[in-house]
Design a protein around this nucleic acid. Sequence first.
DNA 1: GTTAATTTGTTCGTATGTATC
DNA 2: TGATACATACGAACAAATTAA
Lengths: 241, 241
Amino acid sequence: MGISMDWEAGLSIWKQIEKQLLADIASGVFAPGDKMPTEMELVRRFGVNRHTVRRAMSALVDANVVRVEQGRGAFVQEQILDYPLGAKTRFSQIVSGRHRLPDKRLISSEVLKASATIAQFLDVKPGTRVVELFSVSEADGIPLAVATSYLPVARFEGIVEIFTQTKSLTEAFKHFGIDDYSRKTTRISAQLPSSRVASLLKQAKNRPVISTESVDVDSAGVPIEYGITAFSSDRVQLIVE
Amino acid sequence: MGISMDWEAGLSIWKQIEKQLLADIASGVFAPGDKMPTEMELVRRFGVNRHTVRRAMSALVDANVVRVEQGRGAFVQEQILDYPLGAKTRFSQIVSGRHRLPDKRLISSEVLKASATIAQFLDVKPGTRVVELFSVSEADGIPLAVATSYLPVARFEGIVEIFTQTKSLTEAFKHFGIDDYSRKTTRISAQLPSSRVASLLKQAKNRPVISTESVDVDSAGVPIEYGITAFSSDRVQLIVE
DNA sequence: GTTAATTTGTTCGTATGTATC
DNA sequence: TGATACATACGAACAAATTAA
């Protein structure tokens, strides 16, 4: 077994293996997010020592082509989306600007009374009725983020239906006469996802998410949305200019 | 055992326990970062059912006073430092502005040849000699971040000694005639720390870090530093305005 | 919840070829 | 030619993390 390679002269074995694996990834044999063969499987396939395989994999990790997780395996690194954090950045614009198909699916919605935190960010009295929107944002069907948004019901009566149709908060806001709004502040932290979030993001529970807390305001500076978003750290990178 | 509480009338038991634990934390019996007693220990101490203890702990988690990690225990939440990401934000200013004592310790330094990535960000030719500074940033002796910085040797000959003395890159830059510099871009992601980074941050390996990649430029727009920083996600939150 | 199996990470040691001084 | 350093390649054992039974 494993006598399939013609060892070229002048190129070290591990570089030839790296080249072959890179070709497999480029040709789609291993797709983004897929699990690569285990080290032992590659050892058998190429008929070399485990160290030699590891050397090749290490090069692929450095090149950011694969990602290795101890005890789980190696995975083809997903294409990372650069997500600029600006006052006017819109999810759909960013994704379609990268020639990928954006989608935002509403998972659940609920009307509840604002907690102290929510009330503070929305600048309303605690107990005020707010609508909670729980949604998943995807690009080409791959989940990038899950978001929990809170909006004051008084101002946005019926927004759930409009959001479900338009699949965009930006579009939904237009129905309420808000043609322009902007991001006020964004707080960024890192967390391990809950089971629910990990499942919705289709990612392992022990892969971290980038968690943001943000407030959007209308042109008059009045808060219209407070949201908590969990971005898959394997698929999204936030950019601050 | 566990008959030490006088159960006040009119206040539910879990609220009394919450109050007591809060007092313990406020008085320093449990310091920030400390491990709280296990649920079973608290059950014995208060002589109540485990659910009652969990109800109290749950309230403390909601109040962001403690943080529970499955399989590890509950920990007193560290005070989270808001770290604004701006063009001119300086670590020492931010920390001292919060009335905490900043410190930046150099762990190691090395002169090496720029990889393709480093060369690209510093806008130099690959192979150019750069100095790598590996440091830990602390506030009141608590590590907040570990940073790896790359600077072109040609322009900053002898910066290691100056940095060791001043414990600040901002100060060190002044010795090279750079009184003003600014952050060009910051890329933000989340990762699990390496063993080394986790150890330097004095945090568990399975707690994520906020990882940033940034380039600083002088007033003429020439890159002077490329850095990768890992912030403890339990102690730091990045803010974008 | 515990145990066992799987998989990657680390560290020894050995040997070989190549480039440099 | 010899000495030395360095990268490559193989082997074995154990540690650490994850997954599955």
